[in-house]
Design a protein around this nucleic acid. Structure first.
Length: 649
RNA sequence: GCCGCCUUAGCUCAGUCGGUUAGAGCGACGCACUCGUAAUGCGUAGGUCAUCGGUUCGAUUCCGAUAGGCGGCUCCA
C-alpha cells in the first residue's frame, strides 16, 4: 500500500523491496494491483505494488522484450530503410521482424550485435507515453506494419498473440528511448510495455539466427526477415543456455545416425525416406520385438495391410476430403486412382467389418506396424522426426460405450508403462477437447471427454487441458516426454473417434440382439518408430542401454595371441543371445578401446595373459571405469542380467 | 511451399581474386610392430569439386536452373 504522488519504483525502494540497480537480481518492473508496470509508472494511494525481479518469468520476458527494442533500434541505425514488424519475447529469447530490401547475412548480425552493445552501454532510458490513435498514426507514418496493427487494435489481436506486445493494452502507447544525458529522443516504437528502466539493465544477450517469417503468421502475407536473439539476467545463465544448445547439437540424431552407422537418407531414394543400416536395424528390431511381445500380452491381435489402396477408401474415410494436400499424388492403375496410404485406420476398419461382430469380441484390439506415406512440404522434412515415409505402431480398438472408460484407463497405463521400459521417466499429458468445428453430438463429445479425463485422473499423470484443440472427429490425449536434457517431445496419442465407425457403418450385435455402433479408439504409442528411434537416440546421446545397443560387447585382446580365448568367451555370450564382436584388427589395444568407446559400446571385455591364467576377463565400461579379473561365468552373468533387466549402464 | 545459406575423397574440412598436376586429418586397404585400459609407424588407393545448362580462349571457381541439405516461416491428420 502506497501513498499518492509517487512512482512504483520509488514506492518499492521506500519499502526496501529489492535493488533497482542493474544486475542479476535487479528489480526491473512492478506489479501494480496485479498489472505489470514500469518502475516509473505513477501510483495512487491504496495501490498494491509488488517488485518484479529480472530473473522471474515476467522479469525475463520484460528483459527480452526490451532487448528486442535494442535490436530494432540497432537495425534501423544501420539500415534506416528497415520497416518494423513485431518484436515480442518468446521462450528463451525474443525476435524482431523487419521488412528490408536485403535479407540479413551472418556478418550483418555481427554488426547489429556490436551496435546493440553500444546502445546497452549508453544506458538509454525507456520512457512510456500514451498517445491518441491520430498521434500514433502521424508519428508512425513511415511504419506501415505498425499502422496496420493500430488498425487492428481492439479487433482480432487477442492477449495471447505475439502482436499484443505492440498494441495489447487498453490504450496506445509509444516507448521513447532517451539519451540519458540530454533526454533527447533517440528512437521510438509503438509498444504496450512494460520495459526495463534503462538499456543498462540488460546483463547478457546474443543474436542467434535470422530467417524469413510471414507477416502476422500467414503465408498469404509478405515475408519479413526475422532476427532471433536470447537474453538473460546473468552471463553465466546465458552460457548455461548456450551450452544446452551445444549439447543438443552434439546429440542431433542426424549426426549420431551417421557416426554410429545406423541409418541414412540416400538422395537416390528421395527426401525424407530413410534406410536403416544393419546396426540401426538391430535397434529397431529390438524395439519392435519388445513392443510386439508387450502388445501380445495385453490382448492385441496382429494384422497386416497393404501400402497402397484405391482412392475410394480414403474418400469414404474423409481423408481425401480433408487431407489430400498431405497425401502423395495418386498413381493410375487400370484407370483407377491408387494412393499410398497416409493412415492405417480405414484398413483396420475393413478388417473389423469383414464379418459380423459380436459384443463378446469387444474390445477388439487390432495392431500393426503400419508404414504410411505423407507428403510433407519440402521445407519441413527433418531427419527421422519428420519423414515422408514412416512406420506407425498403430492400433485401433473397437469397444462398446460402457467399455470406453476402462479401456482408455488401461491403455494409458499400458502406454506409459512401455515408455518407461525404454528409459523415459518424465511424462506429461494433454487433453484436447471439442473444437469449434466438430462432428457428432455434444453429448457424445462430453461422454468421450469425460472418459479421457477419468483415464487421466486414474493414471496420476500430470496433465493440462487444451480447450478446443481436439481433432474435428475426436477429443484426444497426447503424452509428452521430457528427454535427458529437458526437451519435450510429443509421442503417444489416444483419440476417441465418432466419425469413422459411422462413415463405414460398422456394427456389432449386442447381448440384447440389437445392432450397435462400436466406439473406435486410435492409438499410436511411439507415434512413429522412426521418430521414436530418433528421440531415443538423442535422449541417450547414442549410448543406448545394453538391451538396445547394436553391439553389446566388444572383446579386446591385449595381443593377437589372446584372440582365440576371447573368441571362446564371445561364443559363450552369443549362446546367451548377446551381440558380441571380437576386435581382431591389427590396431593396438589402446586404439581398439578408443574405437569401441566412440561406438558407445556398453561393455569392453579385455583379456591378456593374466586374465587367461585366471580364467577371467577384465571389464571396461563406457564411463572409463574398469573391473579386472572377473571370472568368465560372472562376466556373462553380469551382462546377461543387465540386458534382461533393461537397465542403463 | 516461402525466405536465406550451403553442397570439394566414405567423414570433417582447407583451397582456387577464372589458368593447365585440387590438399590435409580421420576412416578404408597393405606392410612392419604384438603392445594392459581413448589414437604405433610407414605406405597405397580414393575426387566428372552435387547435376545440367550458360558466359569465357579456359569454369570446381562467375551466372541460371534442378536435386539434396541446413536455419527460419507456414504446416504436422
Amino acid at each position: 500500500m502506497v501513498e499518492a504522488g509517487t512512482t512504483a519504483g520509488a514506492a518499492l525502494a521506500e519499502a526496501g523491496l529489492g535493488e533497482q540497480q542493474p544486475g542479476e537480481h535487479a528489480v526491473i518492473a512492478a506489479r501494480v494491483n496485479g498489472q505489470l508496470r514500469d518502475l516509473a509508472c505513477p501510483v495512487e494511494a491504496g495501490d498494491v505494488v509488488e517488485p518484479v525481479e529480472i530473473g522471474s518469468a515476467d522479469g525475463r520476458a520484460i528483459l527480452r522484450h526490451s532487448t528486442a527494442h535494442v535490436l530494432a533500434q540497432a537495425v534501423q541505425d544501420i539500415n534506416p530503410q528497415a520497416k518494423l514488424g513485431i518484436g515480442p519475447p518468446v521462450e528463451a529469447g525474443f525476435y524482431y521482424d523487419f521488412d528490408v530490401d536485403q535479407p540479413f547475412e551472418p556478418d550483418a548480425l555481427k554488426a547489429i550485435e556490436a551496435r546493440m552493445r553500444q546502445i546497452v552501454k549508453q544506458g538509454q532510458r525507456f520512457s512510456r507515453r500514451v498517445v491518441s490513435e491520430g498521434e500514433a498514426r502521424s508519428e508512425l507514418a513511415g511504419e506501415p506494419y505498425k499502422l496496420e496493427l493500430i488498425g487492428l487494435k481492439g479487433g482480432t489481436v487477442s492477449a495471447d498473440d505475439d502482436e499484443s506486445v505492440e498494441v495489447g493494452g487498453s490504450e496506445l502507447t509509444i516507448y521513447d528511448n532517451l539519451n540519458p544525458g540530454t533526454g533527447e529522443v533517440i528512437w521510438k516504437d509503438l509498444c504496450r510495455g512494460p520495459h526495463l528502466p534503462t538499456t543498462r539493465f540488460i546483463p547478457a544477450f546474443k543474436l542467434m539466427r535470422s530467417g524469413g517469417a510471414y507477416w502476422r503468421g500467414s503465408e498469404k502475407n509478405p515475408q519479413l526477415q526475422r532476427i532471433y536473439g536470447t537474453a538473460w539476467e546473468s552471463r553465466s545463465l546465458q552460457d548455461e543456455y548456450l551450452a544446452m544448445l551445444a549439447e543438443a547439437e552434439r546429440r542431433d540424431h542426424r549426426k549420431l545416425g551417421a557416426e554410429l552407422d545406423l541409418f541414412s537418407f540416400p538422395t537416390e531414394i528421395g527426401s525424407g525416406l530413410p534406410v536403416f543400416h544393419p546396426k540401426g536395424g538391430i535397434i529397431r528390431r529390438v524395439m519392435e520385438d519388445y513392443s510386439r511381445r508387450r502388445h501380445e500380452e495385453a490382448g492385441y491381435q496382429f494384422v497386416n495391410t497393404p501400402h497402397i489402396t484405391k482412392g475410394e477408401l480414403f474418400e469414404r474415410s474423409g481423408h481425401l476430403g480433408f487431407y489430400k494436400e498431405s497425401m502423395f499424388s495418386p498413381m493410375d492403375i487400370d484407370g483407377v486412382d491408387y494412393y499410398a496410404k497416409p493412415m492405417n485406420c480405414p484398413m483396420h476398419v475393413l478388417i473389423y467389418s469383414s464379418r459380423g461382430r459380436s459384443y463378446r469380441e469387444l474390445p477388439l484390439r487390432l495392431f500393426e506396424f503400419g508404414t504410411v506415406y505423407r507428403y510433407e512440404k519440402s521445407g519441413v522434412v527433418h531427419g527421422l522426426t519428420r519423414a515422408r515415409g514412416f512406420t506407425q505402431d498403430d492400433s485401433h480398438i473397437f469397444c462398446s460405450p460402457e467399455q470406453l472408460a476402462p479401456e482408455l484407463a488401461s491403455l494409458l497405463d499400458f502406454v506409459v508403462g512401455l515408455l518407461r521400459d525404454f528409459g523415459l521417466t518424465d511424462f506429461e499429458a494433454e487433453l484436447s477437447t471439442r473444437p469449434e468445428k466438430y462432428v457428432g453430438t455434444p453429448e457424445e463429445w462430453a461422454e468421450a471427454e469425460a472418459a479421457l479425463k477419468s483415464a487421466l485422473d486414474k493414471s496420476g499423470l500430470p496433465y493440462t487441458v487444451a480447450e478446443g484443440e481436439g481433432a474435428f472427429y475426436a477429443p484426444k490425449i497426447d503424452v509428452h516426454v521430457k528427454d535427458a536434457i529437458g526437451r519435450r517431445w510429443q509421442l503417444s496419442t489416444l483419440q476417441v473417434d465418432f466419425q469413422e465407425p459411422g462413415r463405414f457403418g460398422i456394427e456389432y450385435q449386442a447381448a440384447d440382439g440389437t445392432r450397435q455402433r462400436p466406439y473406435m479408439i486410435h492409438r499410436a504409442l511411439f507415434g512413429s518408430i522412426e521418430r521414436f528411434f530418433g528421440i531415443l537416440l538423442e535422449h541417450y546421446a547414442g549410448a543406448f542401454p545394453p538391451w538396445l545397443a547394436p553391439v553389446q560387447v566388444v572383446g579386446i585382446p591385449i595381443a593377437d595371441a589372446h584372440v582365440p580365448y576371447l573368441d571362446k568367451v564371445a561364443s559363450l555370450l552369443r549362446e546367451r543371445g548377446i551381440r558380441v564382436e571380437v576386435d581382431a584388427s591389427d590396431d593396438r589395444m589402446q586404439k581398439k578401446i578408443r574405437s569401441a568407446q566412440r561406438q558407445k559400446v556398453p561393455y569392453m571385455l579385455i583379456a591378456g595373459d593374466e586374465d587367461i591364467a585366471a580364467d577371467a576377463v577384465s571389464f571396461r565400461y563406457r564411463d572409463g571405469t574398469q573391473k579386472n579379473g572377473v571370472s568368465i561365468e560372472q562376466a556373462i552373468d553380469e551382462i546377461v542380467t543387465a540386458v534382461r533387466e533393461r537397465v542403463q549402464v
